[in-house]
Simulated scan of single mutants.
Amino acid sequence: MRDCIVIGGGQAGLATAYYLRRAGIEPLILDDQNGPGAAWRHVWPSMTLFSLASFSNLPGMPMPHYDGFPPASHVIAYLEKYEERYGFEVHRPVHVSSLSWTGCSYALETSVGAMEARTVVAATGTWSAPYAPFVPGAFDGTQWHSARYPGSKPFEGTRVAVVGAKNSGAQIAAELTRVAEVTWYTRHEPRWMADDVDGRVLFEDAHRRAIALMRGEPDPGPGPTGDIVMLPEILEARDSGRLKATPMFDSLDRVKADHLIWCTGFRPALRALRAVLDSSSGTPVPLHPGLFLVGYGDIVGPGAATITGVGPYAKRAAAGVKELLND
């Protein structure tokens, strides 16, 4: 019997483990990856953070300096050093197939056997649950999702349709305009952020909203910041005229391309937790005491799925674990 098991060894799981230790609780972290880095191990080759390293920190340990916007390799190295610094008990690769409530604790079925815990923190993220909307019609080419985008090389000299009006859509479309004929489909005009700011503006806005919600105040809503951070390649592609938005199609029959890349986001990866969640309202809610969700984006709170923004939610979950264990 464990006091607390954290499912997921990425930024949300590590941040929660940090605050659990400060509360005097040593969690067991179960991670289904072969090494540190979680979802960052699977991003496309050219993907970077859209804020500087100095504004991309987990609690207790700043990210090392990087000139420009850090690539995934820098983030993975940081998460590995974070694990080493705090010496968390991380078991990997361990896949959790189901979670159930026994009446006084949680039973986990895993790839290394059954486990039991008084409390569980779910920090499984979203990367393994890519989302694409239903669109009628048929497309004869190859369909991709940004979660599996392999970089620009396979698309050289082809026609590519990219769908999505936020950062991933703009980044992938901008990159591909150098090697392919790109049509960038969006449901509305791109909402560009100011050219002279980076992602910290989004994080500051999310932090403002998160603090209000944690105080029990109404959500003040997002500020007029825009959706797309003007990373150097996006800025250059837009200003050169290569990156232009086209209104979204209403049928796949209208898409004339060799490849179609959906940059339409993700859903919380909560399949193994279905038996202990109530999703009838559209937002998953734990059915029993002692289960906490951390790092799933808006279902948890503004900024919760980011390195910088996950801290307050991790701290709140750790406090909830401690209170329940004390009771």
Rank of each mutant, 00 (worst) to 15 (best):
E236W: 11
E26F: 08
V162L: 05
G311K: 14
L20F: 05
A17I: 01
E189S: 14
S281L: 06
T177N: 11
A132D: 09
V96G: 06
F50K: 11
Y106A: 06
S98P: 03
L270E: 12
L176G: 02
C104N: 15
E189T: 08
V120G: 08
I261E: 09
M230L: 13
N167E: 09
T283G: 09
T48H: 13
M1R: 08
V96I: 11
F55L: 11
D196A: 04
T119S: 12
Y106H: 11
G221N: 02
P302K: 00
A17K: 03
I172R: 11
I29M: 13
R21S: 10
A206C: 10
A107I: 08
G13C: 03
S240T: 13
I7Y: 01
A165E: 13
H95G: 01
V112N: 12
D140A: 15
D31M: 01
A194N: 08
E156G: 08
D239M: 10
I5G: 14
A318C: 10
G223M: 07
G125F: 00
P218D: 05
S100W: 04
D219W: 04
L14H: 05
E204I: 00
A129G: 09
G320R: 07
L49R: 02
G13I: 01
D140E: 14
Y296F: 15
A72L: 05
I234A: 12
V120E: 07
D31H: 01
P62Y: 03
R271C: 05
V163A: 05
G9M: 03
T124S: 15
P133H: 06
G295H: 01
L235Q: 12
G297W: 08
R187T: 10
S54I: 03
P268N: 01
P45E: 09
T142F: 05
G8R: 00
L20Y: 02
P136Q: 08
A138F: 07
L293K: 10
Y66A: 07
I228Q: 02
V163C: 08
